[in-house]
Design a protein around this nucleic acid. Structure first.
Length: 493
RNA sequence: GUCCCUGUCGUCCAGAGGUCUAGGACCCAGCCCUUUCAAGGCUGUAACGGCGGUUCGAAUCCGCUCGGGGAUACCA
C-alpha cells in the first residue's frame, strides 16, 4: 500500500542514418501512450554510434517529424533534460569505465581479430553447416594461455591481426535465455555470440550503449522492434554483470511491406516518415492509422480515436504479436474523414501551410478563393495536396481557362443555344448566390427549354470549369462572380 | 544451416471450447440520393494454411506439417 510507484520513463532511440523511419513514429506513439497514461516521461535519445552511417540533417528531421505528429519528447538532445547528453556520440566517456569494469571482472576481453579473419571464419562455418556459429574465441584462449601482459604480442604473430582491438563479452554458459515481455509474455531467445561491445574506433556498439544509457537515464520500459528479441540475452547479461535491474521490455511487431518482408524505404515509399507530410496527410490521421496497426480500435462505434482516447485505453497486452502489413489504404480513408471533420477555416489554413511547405506559398487571391471554396471541396479531397488542383479553374481568368478535349467532345450540338439561354438568364440576376443562380438556370433551361437537368447543366459545367467533372457548379459560379461566369459562358456560343 | 517470433476475409482488427451458418473497418461491386465527382445511406463478395489428436462439442487446447517474418555484424 505504501509502495511508491516508480515514475515510468520510456524512450525512442532512432539512429540518424537517413530519413526518419515510420517505425520510429510507430514506436514513439506506443511509448507516448504508455508514458502519458502513467504520467511519466518520454525520452528521445540519438543512437549515433555508427559513425559511418551518419547522414547530415537526419537528426533535425527526427525532431521535426515527431513534432509534426505531436509526439514531442520530454527530454531530447534538442530540449535537454536532467539525464543528458542524449546523443550517444557525446557519451563516450560515460561508457568507458563500464568497459574497464567488465574487463577487470573477466566478463569481457580484448580481441584483435581482423574483419577479414572474422569474415573467413563465418564463411567456413557456413560452408561446414555447423550449428555452432559465431566467434571462435581465439583471443580469449590466448589470454588464458599467455596472460594479459603477453596476449597482444602473441596474437600479433598470428594471421588476421588487427592493430586496434575490440572488446568482446565473454558469454557464460548460464546466460539468461528467456525473459518476460510486456506484449508477448514469456519469450525465449537464442544463446548469444561473444558480442563486441567496444569497437576499434572507441565507440560502443548498440548493445553496450543501450544498456548503460537506459540504466543511467532511468528508463523503466524499453519499447523497441521485434528484431531485438534475439539480442535481449546480451543486454540481460550486461545488466547482470553491472549489477543493475533490467527495465521492462516491450517488443513491438515489425511493420511489413506488402510482400511481407520487413518494411523498407526501397519497397515502400511510406516507410519514410516524411513522405506522409509531403503527400498531404494530416498528422492526426497518421497517428490514428498507426494506432490501428497491431492494436484493436479503442472505441466500438468507430475506428477513429484521438490520441488521448488511445492513451486512456492503452494496454500492452492488446498489442498483436503479428507484424502488420503496412498498407496505407485505410489511411487514405482516415485522412479524408479527418479533413471532413476539420473546421472550414482550419482546413483552408492547413492547405495554405501545406502548399507553403512544398515551396508554393499562396498569394492573397488564391487564399481568398480557397477559403471560399473549402466548403465545396472538403468532402472531395483525401489529401491536402488534392485541394489546389481541384480548384484550378477558379483561379484562372476566363481567357486562360483551357477546355479539356473530352469535355469539348461531349458538348451537345445545341450547346450554343443552351449557353446563350444561360447567359440571358443570368444577365438580369441581381442576387449572385448559388441558389439564385440555380433557380435562374433551372427556369431558363429545364423549365423553359424543356431540357433534362443533365443535358442542361453539363455544357454549363464545361464552360465554367473546363472539364466534365468538377466541384459543385452553382457554388463555383458564385465564387467566380457574375462577370467572370458570363465571360466563360460566352466562349461557348 | 542454426536459433527465435508468428499464421482468421486482399489489408487492418474482433474472436480467449458451445452465443461463429466467424463480427467490424478499409478496399471492391451493386443500389439509393444526385446536374458531374465526391460525401452519405443500404446491400453484397470475401477468411479460421493443412493433417492428426483431446472433447459431447474447436477458429479457440495439444502435436506434427507447411508457410511468413526476424536474428545470426567492429549496423542499429
Amino acid at each position: 500500500m505504501n509502495e511508491v510507484k516508480k515514475t515510468q520513463r520510456t524512450r525512442v532511440a532512432p539512429s540518424p542514418t537517413g530519413d526518419p523511419h515510420v517505425g520510429t513514429a510507430y514506436q514513439a506513439l506506443f511509448d507516448v501512450a504508455w508514458v502519458r497514461q502513467q504520467g511519466g516521461q518520454f525520452v528521445l535519445r540519438i543512437e549515433d554510434t555508427d559513425q559511418n552511417r551518419l547522414v547530415a540533417g537526419s537528426e533535425q528531421q527526427i525532431y521535426d517529424s515527431l513534432r509534426w505528429l505531436g509526439l514531442d519528447p520530454d527530454e531530447s538532445p534538442e530540449v535537454g533534460g536532467a539525464y543528458g547528453p542524449y546523443r550517444q556520440s557525446e557519451r563516450l566517456d560515460t561508457y568507458r569505465p563500464y568497459v574497464e569494469q567488465l574487463l577487470a571482472a573477466g566478463h569481457a576481453y580484448y580481441c584483435w581479430c581482423s574483419a577479414e579473419r572474422l569474415k573467413e571464419l563465418r564463411a567456413e562455418q557456413e560452408a561446414a553447416k555447423v550449428s555452432e556459429t559465431g566467434y571462435d574465441r581465439l583471443c580469449y584462449h590466448l589470454l588464458l594461455e599467455h596472460g594479459a601482459d603477453k596476449v597482444r604480442e602473441v596474437r600479433s604473430q598470428l594471421p588476421g591481426f588487427s592493430e586496434m582491438p575490440v572488446v568482446r563479452m565473454l558469454v557464460p554458459e548460464d546466460a539468461p535465455l528467456s525473459f518476460t515481455d510486456l506484449i508477448r509474455g514469456s519469450v525465449n531467445a537464442p544463446f548469444p555470440d561473444d558480442q563486441v561491445i567496444l569497437k576499434a574506433d572507441g565507440f560502443p556498439t548498440y548493445h553496450l550503449a543501450v544498456v548503460v544509457d537506459d540504466h543511467l537515464m532511468g528508463i523503466t520500459t524499453v519499447v523497441r522492434g521485434e528484431e531485438w528479441i534475439s539480442s535481449t540475452p546480451k543486454h540481460l547479461l550486461l545488466y547482470r554483470w553491472l549489477g543493475w535491474e533490467p527495465p521492462a521490455f516491450a517488443h513491438m511487431p515489425l511493420l511489413r511491406n506488402t510482400d511481407h518482408s520487413k518494411i523498407s524505404k526501397r519497397k515502400n515509399p511510406a516507410a519514410r516518415l516524411l513522405w506522409f507530410r509531403e503527400q498531404g496527410y494530416l498528422p492526426e490521421a497518421l497517428l490514428n492509422f498507426l494506432q490501428l496497426l497491431g492494436y484493436p480500435p479503442v472505441r466500438e462505434d468507430s475506428e477513429m480515436a484521438t490520441l488521448s482516447e488511445f492513451v486512456a485505453h492503452f494496454d500492452w497486452a492488446k498489442i498483436s504479436t503479428v507484424g502488420p502489413v503496412f498498407d496505407t489504404g485505410k489511411l487514405d480513408w482516415l485522412n479524408g474523414a479527418y479533413i471532413r471533420a476539420l473546421d472550414d477555416t482550419e482546413l483552408a489554413h492547413r492547405i495554405a501551410i501545406y502548399e507553403a511547405e512544398r515551396g508554393r506559398p499562396l498569394d492573397e487571391h488564391t487564399v481568398a478563393v480557397l477559403t471560399a471554396a473549402v466548403p465545396i471541396i472538403k468532402e472531395r479531397i483525401t489529401l491536402l495536396s488534392d485541394a489546389l488542383p481541384m480548384i484550378d479553374y477558379l483561379l484562372l481568368p476566363a481567357a486562360e481557362l483551357v477546355i479539356a478535349d473530352d469535355a469539348r467532345a461531349a458538348l451537345p450540338e445545341n450547346t450554343a443555344q443552351i449557353v446563350s439561354a444561360a447567359v440571358a438568364a443570368l444577365e438580369t440576376l441581381t442576387d449572385w448566390n448559388p441558389s439564385a443562380i440555380q433557380d435562374a438556370l433551372r427556369s431558363a433551361l429545364v423549365e423553359t427549354l424543356g431540357l433534362k437537368p443533365k443535358v442542361a447543366f453539363n455544357p454549363i459545367r464545361t464552360a465554367i470549369a473546363g472539364r466534365k467533372v468538377s466541384p459543385p457548379l452553382f457554388e463555383s459560379m458564385a465564387i467566380l462572380g457574375q462577370p467572370e461566369c458570363q465571360a466563360r459562358l460566352s466562349r461557348l456560343i
